[in-house]
Computed example of a mutant assay.
Amino acid sequence: MPKSDVLFEPLTLPCGEVLKNRIAKSAMSDSLGDGTGHPTAPQNRLYQRWAQGGLAVSIIGEVQCLSGFAEKPGNLVLNENSELELFRKLAKYGCENGAKLWLQLGHAGALSYAPTSSPKGPSALDLPGLSCEELTRDEIKSLPSQFAKTALLAKQVGFGGVQVHGAHGFLLSQFLSPLFNKRTDDYGGEISNRMRLLLEVIEAVRTAVGDTFPIALKLNSSDQLEGGLSEEEALDVVGALEETSVDLIDISGGTYFPGAKAASDGAGKGPYFIEFAKRARGLTTKPLMLTGGFKTRAQAEEAIACGVVDMVGLARALVLEPSLPNLWQKNERLEPNFPRFKNAPEGGVTAWYTMGMTNISNEIEMPDTGSLEKVIQDYEARDQKRIEVWQKYFSENTI
């Protein structure tokens, strides 16, 4: 098959679901929730725009099962107390044009946003910029059913699938990482124990949603931190996933641990985790998706054509050009024009892309690349307003 065709071949997942091509919008925290955990009209427009742009699936970053462990006050919260009609509307917009819209099931754990949470992780931590209490065994045992309930609601209101978030230093990733997980019970110690909760969540979600609903997993290739989850341990997890009902393994890497380097630091050109994906391919028959570092159509085509992965996850490229899949299919914009930022302050580039999603949803121009300080101020001011909304709403509505 010519390379120019491989990106637009359908992909049949193990559950039987057919994705129309091999391009996904990987999960990003769009931060467009209303502060009460519910979707907004701008969020509907954003995912509608991506669906119309020709991709196979969009994944909504960090949708919480409970309000107490959110990553940011712009996260969505989906459970039995949510206004389900608002989620049903989001699912409808995001599933236009044959696209699928999946929810990424999240729990920030030790990285829960302190102004709206009481962070808890596998083990108690007291570090500069990061402190949390330890989850009790009963709290751990309740987690799989919480993920499962939210997954079932996602199915009932019309979303096309879910992705369990086991990467980037959030809760399930924390259990995998020996830096976060110092437990001495059967959820700590060897990697076989540290992956126990992740496998229990997958099993509970599958039991809840049935055999034909897609379940993906986002997995770190490593934490990219000394003493964290190693590539060898991550490959052990991949091997164990072969015995589960997961439909797609999305390979990523890195963590939001304070002071940790970005995934792009020192990664070189091209997909960041392609070498890990090559090793993982030999351990599993599960479809693999690779997220991080794709900047051209040629890079995406090569990853699929060589058989290493089955899908590519694009994030910032689809913020710059929401219609990129359609353009690539027409041999246009083969190399999107990524902006260069000089002397970017910490968090500035992420804030720029996050506010870029806001601008897309409001159908206005992208932010000025030369005003990152202003972008950060706008980003933080929006969060501050929603902190107040979040605290008031969830103090009156325990969900």
Rank of each mutant, 00 (worst) to 15 (best):
G253K: 00
G253Y: 03
G253M: 03
T255E: 04
T255W: 01
Y256S: 15
A260I: 13
K261W: 02
A262S: 07
A263N: 12
S264C: 02
S264F: 03
D265E: 11
G266L: 11
A267T: 06
A267H: 05
G268R: 02
G268N: 04
G270D: 03
G270Y: 06
P271I: 01
Y272C: 01
Y272N: 10
F273K: 06
I274M: 15
I274P: 00
R279C: 10
R281N: 15
G282I: 01
L283V: 14
L283C: 13
T284Q: 10
T284C: 07
T284V: 12
K286T: 11
M289R: 03
M289C: 12
M289L: 14
T291L: 10
F294E: 14
F294W: 10
K295I: 04
T296D: 15
R297D: 00
R297P: 00
R297S: 09
E301R: 15
A303F: 04
I304T: 06
A305C: 07
A305K: 13
V308K: 12
V308Y: 13
V308H: 13
V309Q: 00
D310I: 12
M311F: 08
M311P: 00
V312I: 15
G313A: 13
G313C: 14
L314D: 00
R316A: 06
A317Y: 07
A317T: 03
L318H: 11
P322C: 06
P322G: 11
S323R: 07
S323F: 08
S323K: 01
L324S: 01
N326Y: 06
L327T: 05
W328Q: 05
W328D: 06
Q329L: 08
Q329R: 15
E332L: 07
E332Q: 09
R333Q: 11
L334N: 08
L334S: 09
P336N: 13
P336L: 14
P336V: 12
N337A: 13
K342Q: 12
N343L: 03
N343G: 08
A344M: 14
P345W: 08
E346P: 12
E346T: 14
E346V: 07
E346I: 04
E346W: 02
G347M: 11
G347R: 13
G347Q: 13
G347C: 10
G348A: 09
V349E: 12
T350S: 10
T350K: 07
T350M: 10
A351T: 13
Y353P: 12
T354Y: 01
M357W: 00
M357H: 01
I360Y: 00
S361E: 14
N362K: 11
N362C: 05
N362T: 06
E363I: 04
I364E: 10
E365N: 15
P367V: 01
T369A: 09
T369G: 09
S371K: 14
L372H: 01
E373P: 00
E373I: 01
K374G: 02
V375G: 02
V375M: 00
I376E: 11
I376R: 10
I376A: 15
Q377F: 09
D378C: 10
D378V: 14
D378I: 12
Y379I: 05
Y379H: 13
Y379W: 13
